[in-house]
Structures are given as C-alpha cells and as structure tokens.
Design a protein around this nucleic acid. Structure first.
Lengths: 142, 142
DNA sequence: CTTGACTCTATAGTGACTATAGAGAATTAA
DNA sequence: TTAATTCTCTATAGTCACTATAGAGTCAAG
C-alpha cells in the first residue's frame, strides 16, 4: 500500500503522514524499488489511532505518550487515565472560557444595529470603553 | 513612557508590543536619545483596544480591520457589525464542537478506572475501536 | 512514447506569539 | 566614581500542527 492509499484509509493528507513519520509517531516504512513508501495494516491502524486522538484535540505530545503505552502493553494503565483526565480538564476550562466569550460578544453585538457612522458605533464604543475582564481563551488552546 | 510601562498598563508582554509594531497595529513611536521607544496616552488606549479584542479571541487581521475603521470615523459602521457577526458565528461553531468533544471524552473516561495493565485499558480500547465521528475542533481555531 | 497521476525531498510559510543571545542605556547602591 | 542591577535594543530561531510550493523522479494506461 502506498502513501496515497494510506492517506485515504485514514482520512488525512499525504503530507501529514510524512510529517508524523518525521515526528516519530509512525515508524519508517519499507520502500519500493522506486523509493516509494510501502505500508501495511499495522500502519493503517496506528495512523487511525493517531487521527482519532487528534479528533479529540490531543496534542502530538499526548498522543506520543499514549502510543508509548500502547507499545508496552504490560504497563499499568493509570497513566492513561491521568493523561485523559488532564486533557478533559483542559477542555472543560476551554469550554468555560468560550461560553463566557460568547456571552460577551452577544452583549457587544446588542450595542449597535449598523447604519451609523463609525464614530457613533456602539460596538466600537464598547470595545473602547468597557472595562470588563474576560477570561482570555487565547492560551488554553486545548 | 517607556515600553515596560506601556506593557504594564496594557497587561501584556514587551515583546508583544514590539510584535504589534512590526505588524503595523501600533504606530512607530518616538525614540529617546538612547533609542528607547517612547509612548503616550494614545498608544496606551490603542494597545488596550487591541488587547481587548484579543481577549475576545479576534485575529490580528480582524483587529486590523477594526482599527482601520476606528481611524476613519466617518465611514458607515455596517462593516463593524458584519465583522462581529462573523466572529460570533465562528465562536458558536467552536463552542458546539468543544461541547461534543467534551461529551466524547467523558464517555471515553467512563471506560476505565485505572490499575489494569494497558492491554486491558478500556480507554485505549475505546481509542482503538470506536468508530464514532467526532466533529473535529482542530481547524476552527477561533 | 507520451500523458497523467502519483510520489519523492527540501524548504518556506501560517498565527500569535515566546525564547534566546549579545549588546547598549539608565538607574541605584556602595 | 564605580559597580551592580535593571531596562531596553536588534536580530534570529523556536513553538504547534500542519500547509504550500518547487523541482524532480516513478509508474501505469493509451
């Protein structure tokens, strides 16, 4: 199976696969006579695992940790739980921040219905004058 | 006022200020004899505006647009409204995705309480076998 | 034999910063 | 006055998880 087929089976881009290889998440595959990468079912399964974790918004660092555990199946799985709990907690924080952000934007939106000169625009005024403190969502990039 | 004072007043890092200057969001300030940047109240207000928009998770591109409108106060503010509406909609999408993600993680968390060999860990099993489709949150980086 | 689809490597760009190195400027303490 | 500390300067590279591009090589079908 060549890289294009693998990409289709996992629903991701070819470049992403090469990127994962470079990052050490996918093992270096065999090569054809013409230097094409050749994959098997093991790679499909592993890549799907990675993509599933990514769809859960895990970082590659987290996924790397999970893969290592997967590769040592006799270890205790407590760490898996910790990892997931931590991740979940970050998501909770992010949800909270986003909900507040949404409220804030809605309130701001109320302040102008358009068709005025910018000078009188309630939204711009709101952005300039409000002294509320929004929980910033920028760094909780979960 | 030097860059450190400005940073304190706006609650951001010094490097961030220089970055905004490089990106054209803040005008190039006067310089002292020793080549230090010198700021006034105009800069404080403008930087606070930018930071407030950032705390609302707007991109620098969006903020640039708002600043341009602010700098031309006779224009119609319809565009301000459009910009905010668009932004709000993106946030709604992101909230939706995150809530689904959260549900998914919670479900996964249920599947293992720890203290087993990784081989038997319900979470890893869930990650390997589940064929659900999660609305990916990765590209809606609002 | 050529067309087209596929693949290769290497490099640069994205966004919004953050980190670092190595230097000069200004302030404070001895 | 000197020394130490703190602040600032520029320039460059790194972060994350990709995405985009250039230029070349490989392979199957017509």
């Amino acid at each position: 199976m060549r890289i294009g087929d693998l990409a289709k089976r996992a629903g991701c881009e070819i470049v992403t696969i090469r990127y994962y290889e470079k990052e050490g998440l996918l093992p270096k595959p065999a090569r054809s006579a013409g230097n094409f990468r050749l994959y098997g079912d093991v790679h499909v399964e592993r890549l799907q695992f990675i993509r599933r974790c990514r769809s859960l918004d895990m970082t590659l660092r987290e996924i790397r940790a999970l893969l290592e555990m997967r590769d040592n199946p006799t270890l205790d799985c407590g760490e898996v739980n910790v990892l997931l709990d931590t991740h979940l907690q970050q998501v909770e924080v992010r949800v909270e921040a986003l909900l507040q952000l949404r409220q804030h934007l809605l309130a701001l939106r109320e302040q102008c219905s358009g068709a005025r000169p910018v000078q009188a625009c309630g939204i711009l005024r709101g952005l300039i004058n409000c002294n509320c403190h929004v929980v910033s969502a920028e760094h909780s990039n979960v």
